Simulated scan of single mutants.
Amino acid sequence: MADRPGIEIPDHRGRTGLDEAGRGLDRNPDVVVEDVALTSQGWHVLRRTRFAYRRKDGRWQTLERETYDRGDGAVVLPYDAERRRVLLTRQFRYPAYVNEHPDGMLVEAAAGLLDADRPEAAIRREAEEELGVRLGPLTHVYDTYMSPGSVTERLHFYAAPYTPADRVSRGGGLAEEGEDIEVLELPFPEALSMVRDGRIADAKTVMLLQWAALEGPFRG
């Protein structure tokens, strides 16, 4: 058998051993990973895993699941408590567009993949690239698995205060990565209203705005 890109030899991103993820996992005695097959290795990685699962009645069942591995990410809600405003983005999202969103232009909190960075460093980088703002102290809100039925991603949530003096550029993202991001500075009540009427339909953004209203800088 010829050497396979992403397994025995490097793929287009220099990766090997992409079929190793999950092999040897033993944290749950009721799950035994039997085989991992690499089914796609584009920018991110799709795997099919076969595992034995011990049900509550003691019977073992063989299952197969596909997992999409795009790495972990971080997201931040910059807020100006004095002016009662938040910084968000608007950008085109093809997956939403093809799944019945009217135009694919989603209003979101700034976010990005960690790559090789720690979550705090990654979200500071994304805030400067997307929003043009240099963040001060970060508040860690929570970490969540956003779509655990099929996507491995864990998202690290943050909030951070900002003032107009913290703006260091126009933002907009990186054109070489296909980003064309509009920066939105919105009154917090308007952002909440956009959640209620569906103009904000992005889960991570809804979660951060609701946190800000219930427990964060705009509670009460």
Rank of each mutant, 00 (worst) to 15 (best):
residue 148 P to G: 03
residue 170 R to P: 09
residue 182 E to H: 03
residue 1 M to A: 12
residue 166 D to S: 08
residue 48 R to N: 12
residue 147 S to Q: 09
residue 194 M to R: 11
residue 53 Y to W: 13
residue 208 L to S: 05
residue 203 A to M: 08
residue 2 A to C: 11
residue 128 E to M: 13
residue 80 D to N: 14
residue 204 K to Q: 13
residue 213 A to G: 07
residue 197 D to C: 05
residue 179 E to M: 14
residue 59 R to N: 13
residue 123 I to C: 02
residue 148 P to N: 02
residue 125 R to N: 15
residue 172 G to P: 08
residue 215 E to W: 01
residue 92 F to D: 04
residue 110 A to L: 00
residue 45 V to E: 04
residue 213 A to E: 11
residue 24 G to R: 03
residue 148 P to F: 03
residue 188 F to K: 01
residue 97 Y to F: 10
residue 202 D to C: 09
residue 21 A to Y: 07
residue 98 V to F: 10
residue 32 V to Y: 05
residue 16 T to C: 12
residue 62 T to Y: 14
residue 207 M to N: 02
residue 218 F to C: 02
residue 208 L to R: 02
residue 136 G to R: 09
residue 106 L to H: 00
residue 162 Y to P: 03
residue 57 D to G: 06
residue 21 A to W: 07
residue 62 T to L: 14
residue 177 E to R: 14
residue 160 A to F: 05
residue 51 F to Y: 15
residue 12 H to K: 12
residue 5 P to D: 10
residue 219 R to P: 10
residue 154 R to M: 13
residue 45 V to G: 01
residue 91 Q to L: 13
residue 10 P to V: 06
residue 28 N to L: 10
residue 209 L to E: 00
residue 13 R to A: 08
residue 130 E to D: 11
residue 80 D to M: 10
residue 6 G to T: 12
residue 62 T to W: 12
residue 57 D to T: 02
residue 216 G to F: 07
residue 30 D to Q: 10
residue 32 V to P: 05
residue 5 P to T: 12
residue 5 P to K: 08
residue 122 A to K: 02
residue 124 R to L: 06
residue 202 D to E: 15
residue 81 A to C: 07
residue 35 D to E: 12
residue 167 R to V: 13
residue 217 P to V: 06
residue 104 G to C: 03
residue 174 L to F: 04
residue 99 N to F: 06
residue 6 G to P: 13
residue 52 A to M: 15
residue 171 G to D: 01
residue 179 E to D: 10
residue 43 W to C: 08
residue 80 D to I: 12
residue 97 Y to K: 00
residue 168 V to L: 11
residue 142 Y to G: 00
residue 174 L to D: 10
residue 75 V to P: 00
residue 173 G to P: 01
residue 139 T to G: 00
residue 58 G to H: 05
residue 179 E to S: 08
residue 169 S to P: 02
residue 207 M to D: 04
residue 185 E to S: 08
residue 207 M to I: 05
residue 139 T to D: 09
residue 100 E to A: 07
residue 105 M to Y: 04
residue 82 E to P: 04
residue 75 V to I: 15
residue 89 T to D: 02
residue 60 W to F: 09
residue 216 G to V: 08
residue 179 E to A: 11
residue 34 E to R: 14
residue 136 G to T: 06
residue 171 G to H: 01
residue 78 P to G: 10
residue 68 Y to N: 11
residue 131 L to T: 03
residue 22 G to I: 05
residue 174 L to V: 08
residue 104 G to Q: 03
residue 14 G to Y: 13
residue 27 R to E: 15
residue 14 G to H: 13
residue 206 V to Q: 04
residue 3 D to G: 09
residue 99 N to S: 09
residue 205 T to M: 08
residue 90 R to C: 02
residue 101 H to R: 00
residue 32 V to T: 12
residue 42 G to A: 14
residue 151 V to M: 06
residue 92 F to H: 10
residue 122 A to D: 04
residue 199 R to V: 08
residue 124 R to Q: 09
residue 29 P to I: 10
residue 82 E to T: 14
residue 114 L to Q: 01
residue 3 D to F: 06
residue 170 R to Y: 07
residue 4 R to D: 09
residue 114 L to N: 01
residue 101 H to A: 00
residue 104 G to R: 01
residue 173 G to W: 00
residue 112 G to Q: 03
residue 215 E to S: 06
